[in-house]
Each structure stands twice: as structure tokens, then as C-alpha cells.
Design a protein around this nucleic acid. Sequence first.
DNA 1: ACTATATTACTAACTAGTTAGTTAATACAG
DNA 2: CTGTATTAACTAACTAGTTAGTAATATAGT
Lengths: 230, 230
Amino acid sequence: MPVMELDVASRTPKVVRNPEASRARILDAARIEFVTHGLSGGRVDRIAEQSGVNKNLIYHYFGSKDALYLAVLERIYADLRARQQDQDLRGLPPIEGMKRLVSNTFDHFVATPDLIRLMSIENIHYAEHLKSSGSTKALYSGLLDTIRILLKRGQEEGVFRANVDAVDLYLSISGLAYFFLSNQHTLSWLLDRDLAARWRVLKRRQHVVEMVLSYLTQASPVEAGGVDPQ
Amino acid sequence: MPVMELDVASRTPKVVRNPEASRARILDAARIEFVTHGLSGGRVDRIAEQSGVNKNLIYHYFGSKDALYLAVLERIYADLRARQQDQDLRGLPPIEGMKRLVSNTFDHFVATPDLIRLMSIENIHYAEHLKSSGSTKALYSGLLDTIRILLKRGQEEGVFRANVDAVDLYLSISGLAYFFLSNQHTLSWLLDRDLAARWRVLKRRQHVVEMVLSYLTQASPVEAGGVDPQ
DNA sequence: ACTATATTACTAACTAGTTAGTTAATACAG
DNA sequence: CTGTATTAACTAACTAGTTAGTAATATAGT
């Protein structure tokens, strides 16, 4: 009658089962896979292989390829929300606060290329997964509030122009950074410049801050009318 | 010995052969397919079905799925070049010329959503197809020249600021329109606004023109330094 | 007859998802 | 604390359907 509880195997803390870790490894591998190849190009078999887990375990935990993709999407949006530290900008002088808001947004985009690629991928798929997500909504409310607070104070102090829509401003701040980063590959080729070079990224950052601040600090539009659409 | 050349089938002017038309129909169907589903999500069988042509004819004309995709990409870039009518802007007063350049760019993006989606798709694939293309290079040289000419005249007349990089300005003009359009689906959901609504597009157009012109017409940056990267 | 054009039928490889089970952890009665 | 029932973690092998690409063959125009 062998004494089981004292043999080597049972004392060795070799973790054969570890649901938390398995789930996390699947999710990490899935993020890399979908970010690299897109949703349609992403392969479940490759995710299984890379996470060192049997394919069916993926279905055990996540149900389907689409559900796994959604989990990846939700996690990266949750990370975004967690990292958005814009509350402390509300107390700053408006110009300084807005400068920091613009450069923080830019820096965050630069730091997380996965976010940009997933946003592009999700838009290629008409945001159908995001729309079927319970979370993720109300992601921007905090950021938009910060923008509104800074705008209002700047207008009261007379340093910002009137009639600025917070959403419009947010779209501009993001767009100025996003396009440069999301379309880096085509643009670098077509413009014959390595847009990923560090000095160019920093130069771009400066340009974006200046453009947004110029807009905000200019009293009134050059000419009210603009150009008629054709 | 039957007389074949006088039967109904041969007298009917049913155009069985029309290589030009077949090629064009394949290309049209392929554009719709790739724009709708992406490259990995696009199906050759569906392209054959939609163009009313046998699948192998596609391989006869284009060789492979990737080559067909590249043909679609090259055509949409060729259309872009053909439609870029910015030469006539060079003679306008700088402010007026620049206003029109910004709104033309915006309008062109709005008018050709296929272009935006294909640009996104190509960037998801790291621009690998574009890079293997003989044509398409030097696409922006004309547009950049127009920007440089208007910038220079504006600076000489004292209405535009100094030290503006033409490429930086181009990236901003495009980015301000592109992000709003390319990420319409996620943004409309997250911001709870229908960004595709006509009045919002027009409002956005106005905002973009104002932002670019504010930047150009402001004499000097609010403060030279900007914000240090973290 | 000959060639470009077109089609039918086919295949090898792939791919999301399933089946049918084994093994480890945990709860729980005695 | 020990044996047993139950649940959860995990796996190998497979299936049904898809997909890019091809080979053999037909037909029309000249």
C-alpha cells in the first residue's frame, strides 16, 4: 500500500491546472492574433497553439471565435478607460490643461498601437461586435466632461473662443493623432518618409498641440461662411 | 450535314464574348466585396457570383486573390489621382485657396467611402500590397506642391504663419476628416450620435476648415515649448 | 484549323466548431 | 480525515463545411 501523499509528484507544486492563467494566456494570444491579422484573418488554431492550450479549451471559456474577439475588444477598451487619467487636468489653467489633454491623448495612442488597430478592425466590421457589448458604452463621458470644464473656464477667462462643441473638439484631437498612426504604413510608403521615426512622432505631437491650441485661442473664425459644398 | 450557321442561337446578337466588360465587372464586384468584407473576409466565389462570371475567369485575368485585391487598390488610387483637381487652387488668394483645398479633401473623403475603407484595410495588412505595386507612388506630389505654393504665397503676404511643414499640414487636413469618417461606426455608438447624419457632416466640414485656417493664420504658437513627453 | 475566351468539374488544404472522453480539484457524508 | 460523488479543467481526434486554386474541356471568332 503506497503512501501517496508524500511522494515527489504530489509535493512538487507543478501547477497542471490553472484556469485563471489559462484564460489569461488565451486572451493575450487572441489579442496578438487579432491585432496582427484582423478578425477574419485571425485563426483560432493559431491562438490555441500560441497560448499552449487545447483548442477546445478556448471554446470552453469563450464559446466562439466572435465572442473571443469581443472579449479582446472589451478588455482593451477597459484598459483605455482605466488609464484615462484626465480628472487632474480639470484644475489646471485652461490653456495648460488643454495642452496636456491633447498631448496625453497623443501619447496614449502612440503607446498602445493595439488599440488603434482594433479600432480600425472593428470599424471595418461596422462596429457590430461593439454594439452587441454590454460594457464599453459611456466610455468617453469623463473625457468629454473634462473637455467641457476646461472649455468653459477658458471661455470665462477670455482665452478660448466661444461656440466650441466638445465632441467636435474631441474628434479633432483624436483624428489629428489617429490618422497619422493608423495609416502609418500606407503614408510612409506614399510620402517616402518613415513616419514611425521617433523624432517625427515628437514633431507631429508638437504640431497637433499647436493646431488645437491655435483653434481654441483664436477669437473668431477668419470668415464666418466657409465654403459651400458642391 | 446540318447547316449550323443559320440557327437561332448563332443569329442572336447575344454578346458572349466581351473581355473588357468581363474584366470590368470582375473588378467592380471585387471592389464591393473587399470594401465590404476586407481582404481576408472577401470571398473569390462571391466575386465570381456577383460579377456573373465563372471563378476561373478571375484567375485567368488576375492570377490570384491578392493580385485581384491589388488591382482594386490600384484602381481606387488611380481614381483618386484623376479626381484630384487642385491645380486651379494655386492661383487663388492663399486663404481662399487653402479653404477650398481643405473642403475639397473633406468632400472627396465623404464622397468615396470605399477609398477610406480600403485605406484602413490596407493598413491592417501593413501596406504590403501597396508596397509591391509599381504604380501608386508619387500620388501626393501634386497635392503637396499645391500646399507648398499656397503656403509660400500666404507667408509672403503675411497672412500665414511661418515654419509650416507641408506634409504635417496635409496629415492634419486628412486626419481631421478621416478619423471622423473611418471610425464612424464605433464613434456613433460610443458617443450616442449618428455621425453619418448629413447636418453633422456639414458641421464637421465647417469645423475642420476653421481649425486648419486658425492654425495657419495665427502668427505664432501660444507658447513655443509645448508639453514634454512623459 | 486555330486561338482567345469561357465553363464545368474537381481537389488539396484549411477552418470553425464538436464529440467523447480523461484528469484534477472540490464538496461532502460518515 | 478519509473515501466518494460531483464538478470543472483540459485534451485528442474528428467532422462538416469552406476556400483558393487547377485541370480538362468546350465554344466562339477569324
